[in-house]
Design a protein around this nucleic acid. Structure first.
Length: 595
RNA sequence: GCCCUCAUAGCUCAGCUGGAUAGAGCAACGGUUUUCUAAACCGUAGGCCGUAGGUUCGAGUCCUACUGGGGGUACCA
């Protein structure tokens, strides 16, 4: 690697000139306002050099000029040594990689297994914008980790049991008149969601009535007949009551059919589904295990706890006094089950940051219990999604439905594409596919470009924008490149050999800038994997697209003055197109051949 | 109460492990098309990086306090 080569020479320079051994040399890319490709800051080494910043930088620069062929030139501004890398390095890089279909991918994860759990919906209502962020992040994360060589298993832990499902079931039994997705043509998850809302409405009326009768609100919430019936139903469910199980199975199947459709449109998938109905009883054996290890302790009322105060946390309950287990205990069981099934050394949970505390506790418990996979548990915590009107609240009907969202954004892509009228001659099927690629590209990019850790604002008007820092902007560059390649009579696959480029060629400034950025692609994929950040890939792709547009504006490709220059620029097109395709694929975004 | 997290242009966001004069997009204004796709490019304008201290050659970035937003926490998931 170039950077390693440079840092090696710099530390040699320092030891030769100043007689000081240093390591941990840091290099950064030169700010756009100065001439150069890499910058070495000499301030930290003035003690060794015993000279002024300028003299120190000058001396190192001269040494590098003599000893490192990669550097053609340097300049010094205060304590900053700006190094200019020879064009030939980038031309060589170009000729070696322009047709490399796996460019940007790394292999250091080879032989290591990682699990990514994401999506994890409840089966009582349809997916909304919050789930969309989760799904897109989870999928992209898995893609990025794969691109670094790891073997990835994607799993979905479905919350298919509990009081919330009973509410939908009960409302359907009471008010549904036997309505089904088939009889009404409603998507299954939407239908079940509708009855969840019905329940809430009827329940509220009951509460109002009880309050009017002089009962306190808190008591009314507990005493309302509907709530009692729902709890009753949950007990029947736990007892395995045949009729309750039948309705439960039927309604969950409706929901799964609906989810499958939404997942398909989102372009996300899973290698394995886990269901809480099958895991919720796990946990008791772990309570015993923890007690035996002395990790847990029992109170007089027989509830079981763990004391995490030495870690700045509190005491946490792991089993209630009535002997039933709590959520975190189930999670211990599920974690064990996953490890038995796949043996992943690293297990990533894509769950919103409202559960930070929960996962901190889970990891600590697993560590104290000495689980072999405990250190590999990682909570990928992302921020909530807000709307311009404020927080999304399902009770107040302010949620943005995932299916509606996709419909709207694809319709917008269609309207815009039709308006521009560049798609003459495409079949209707092709057109639909294109609208889908563009609409989903806009949506996915809009969500993935922001740092996952941060709470984000979803502005519907902005999300359907197709100009500027958007998915379609990047897709447009890809389509442009394909157009040039088609016109070039060279196959766009990159398999047709292009004359070996002469490495002594001189590059235009925009060409070099683009190549430097392309050179950094593998490093970016690596960094995104380490930081678990699809946003890094998104920002990289955007920057790449911008740099290409600048290059495209300034440098004629097919009409280049010389054949050699044309071929070099075609190779740049290949490499840029490939890189965009790969980068967007890491975000789950497709690319169109024309638009 | 305690804990976690965030605060950068009018708006939405970048700013890599501390480095030079803090960058994009949107919105506003102006320019570019007989030439490879104008979903583009170029330019103008817009900032006490929440406030106050501290660490150091150097702080948007690290530490402390405060203010403001969000989240969590006391046998819910």
């Amino acid at each position: 690697m170039l950077e390693q080569e440079l840092t090696k020479h710099i530390s040699q320079a320092i030891s030769t000139i100043f007689g000081a051994e240093v390591n941990g040399i840091k290099l950064e890319s030169t700010s756009e306002d100065f001439e150069g490709d890499y910058t070495f800051v000499v301030f930290p080494y003035l003690k060794q050099s015993k000279k002024s910043p300028e003299q120190t930088a000058e001396a190192i620069g001269n040494y590098l000029m003599e000893n490192c062929k990669l550097i053609t030139c340097f300049n010094v501004v205060k304590g900053f040594l700006n190094l200019i890398i020879s064009d030939s390095l980038y031309v060589d890089f170009l000729s070696q990689n322009f047709s490399n279909k796996t460019f940007g991918q790394n292999t250091h994860g080879k032989g290591h297994k990682v699990m990514v759990e994401y999506s994890s919906p409840n089966t009582n209502k349809p997916l909304h914008l919050g789930h969309v962020r989760n799904n897109l992040l989870g999928y992209s994360l898995a893609q990025i980790i794969k691109a670094n060589g790891y073997e990835v298993t994607k799993v979905n832990l479905v919350n298919d049991r509990g009081i919330h499902i009973c509410k939908s079931m009960l409302a359907w039994q009471l008010f549904g008149n036997g309505e089904t997705p088939e009889t009404n043509g409603i998507k299954g998850d939407k239908l079940v969601g509708k009855y969840y809302v019905e329940f809430d409405k009827a329940y509220k009326l009951e509460i109002e009535k009880l309050v009017a009768e002089g009962i306190s609100e808190a008591d009314a919430e507990k005493q309302a007949p509907l709530m009692k019936s729902a709890q009753e139903m949950l007990r029947h469910w736990e007892a395995g009551d045949a009729e309750v199980m039948r309705v439960w199975g039927m309604m969950n199947d409706w929901v799964y059919a609906g989810f499958a459709e939404s997942y398909r449109r989102l372009g996300v998938d899973f290698d394995k589904y886990y269901y809480e109905s099958k895991t919720y009883l796990l946990g008791k054996q772990y309570v015993q295990e923890g007690l035996a290890q002395g990790v847990f302790y029992q109170k007089d009322d027989s509830s079981v706890w763990i004391d995490l105060r030495e870690y700045g946390l509190d005491e946490k309950i792991v089993q209630r006094s009535d002997g039933t287990s709590v959520y975190i205990t189930q999670d211990i069981g599920t974690a064990d089950m996953k490890y038995d099934d796949f043996g992943c050394e690293k297990s990533i949970y894509v769950v919103a940051n409202e559960q930070d505390y929960h996962f901190k506790v889970l990891k600590l418990i697993l560590q104290k219990m000495g689980k072999p996979y405990a250190d590999g548990v990682f909570h990928f915590n992302y921020g909530m999604v807000d709307l311009p009107s404020g927080k999304m609240k399902s009770r107040e009907g302010t949620v943005v439905d995932a299916d509606d969202l996709m419909d709207e954004i694809i319709a917008e892509a269609k309207a815009k594409t039709a308006e521009l009228g560049k798609t003459d001659g495409l079949e209707e099927v092709e057109l639909q596919k294109l609208y889908n690629i563009l609409g989903m590209g806009a949506l996915k990019y809009y969500i993935l470009k922001v740092d996952p850790q941060k709470r984000m604002l979803f502005n519907p008007a902005e999300s359907i924008d197709l100009h500027g820092n958007t998915g379609p902007f990047i897709q447009y560059v890809y389509a442009r490149i394909q157009s040039v390649l088609r016109a070039s009579s060279l196959a766009s696959t990159g398999e047709v050999p292009i004359a070996i480029m002469r490495s002594e060629a001189t590059l235009q400034a925009t060409e070099k800038e683009l190549l430097v950025h392309l050179y950094n692609f593998p490093k970016t994929v690596d960094e995104a994997g380490k930081q678990f950040s699809p946003a890094l890939v998104a920002n990289y792709a955007y920057e790449l697209a911008r740099k290409f547009n600048r290059f495209y504006q300034e440098c004629p490709i097919l009409k280049a003055p010389e054949k050699e220059v044309m071929e070099r620029r075609l190779a740049i097109c290949h490499l840029t197109g490939n890189s965009i395709k790969i980068a967007l694929d890491l975000l789950g975004i497709n690319v169109p051949d024309r638009m």
